[in-house]
Design a protein around this nucleic acid. Sequence first.
DNA 1: CGATGCATTGATAGAGGTCAACTGTAGTGG
DNA 2: CCACTACAGTTGACCTCTATCAATGCATCG
Lengths: 248, 248
Amino acid sequence: MKMMSKTDVACADCPIRHNAVCAQCESDELEVLERIKSYTTAESGETLFRATDRMTHFCSVVEGAATMSRTLPDGRRQMVGLLLPGDFIGRPGRTDYPFDIEAISRVTLCRFERARFERLIADTPRVSARLLQMTLDELDAARDWAVVLGRLTAREKVASFLVSLARRMAHLNGGGARPGAKVIIDLPLSRDEMADHLGLTIETTSRQISALKRDGLIVTDGARRIEIPDFDALVDEAGDDEDGGTLA
Amino acid sequence: MKMMSKTDVACADCPIRHNAVCAQCESDELEVLERIKSYTTAESGETLFRATDRMTHFCSVVEGAATMSRTLPDGRRQMVGLLLPGDFIGRPGRTDYPFDIEAISRVTLCRFERARFERLIADTPRVSARLLQMTLDELDAARDWAVVLGRLTAREKVASFLVSLARRMAHLNGGGARPGAKVIIDLPLSRDEMADHLGLTIETTSRQISALKRDGLIVTDGARRIEIPDFDALVDEAGDDEDGGTLA
DNA sequence: CGATGCATTGATAGAGGTCAACTGTAGTGG
DNA sequence: CCACTACAGTTGACCTCTATCAATGCATCG
């Protein structure tokens, strides 16, 4: 990991200004953040944190992607989170964190030293309120994912993943999209990583992608670019899903 | 659901005084809670909330148990949480809640009207801090459960469930226990509900319980009482599990 | 005491895992 | 520029674990 000067990017110009913990901050609060933040980058494949480590900093993903996962003693691995820009890493109030975090692309992180940030939470209701909101959202997402892992078929799991990824991407690009619209996703994950996320093997994941392709639900361009000609049709394959199916 | 007078139990005498959202409150803050709370009871089997409803109140489980689950259009069901005394129900900042909540025993709830409680959160750092802490704990638990659902075998799932239930029970009874000690659990769930929690069928769940019994890892007394002669041995069957295996 | 509902057990089938071969693509170096 | 390697992804054959379907056991309750 390479450290950078804390003045790399001004909070006001930050790409995650309106998605991250700082989203609800006013300019005077941003000044405080500005003083205590620092940037770090990591290359794809680098381990950012190990479940056994002590966490000395909190941070937000600014650019790139990372995974949060647990590996069992015998090597089985389950991903429990895909971290994209805006996502927060850390548990205020605890120094440990029971999952491994790994960069899966070149990642930029905005870091806050533990004690300082905890003081900030205590003193800044707009930060603590936002953090609660984000944590509640993550909790919902984790529970939604439990439904996927526990009850969906392999085909539904893959479709669900593509749907939720498309939604997150659309959300990050700050916009909805029309129902039935064509959607293009660039997968941040290898087949291996997708499998670990979905609780499947690489082979099954690959087969299901091929099957969706055969059925015309997706079109691929290389292993990582996936086009969804009819988003609603893919949503129907996902089996779960609360709402109607537009890109939220 | 039957309403009761708000003075049924004084906060100071409440069984979940030190586990619930109010855990960190001082006596003057308890007085505020005392004024805005009300009690409700529900019988086993009653639906407390439907995913499509609007949530008008937040509440804490005082006594009894409830489940949080989602049922897919075709009937498949996945439980995403087992609610025991102290657990909080609701998402401050949202009026919807994407899961069904159902009593699985006679349940007593301590309720707060939505707007009043949200004001309380905004005004009472000790409540909002505690809520954040509880939400972070639930998030960890949800992610741990994702590992169980995604990667463990049926046998490991059942063992994991018994282990985590024993730990929660021990925690509620306010105490640890010695490693290797004999443990007795009274299951709050039917086989059907266990299966929905574990992402299995009733039959597989039942078979795995029989297998654990055959292997001497558990002893049963009726369908719902389970004795664990050697807790550590059962922990070993669970496959996952971070720490050594004492009842935390 | 039969009825009703939950739990257990058995027989069979199917979804996904495992092992293995093959394909395609991106690099690398002659 | 074209082999040659390396590795990710795909596909195939087979097997295992869990689901499914069905029957039986075991309580509680009118």
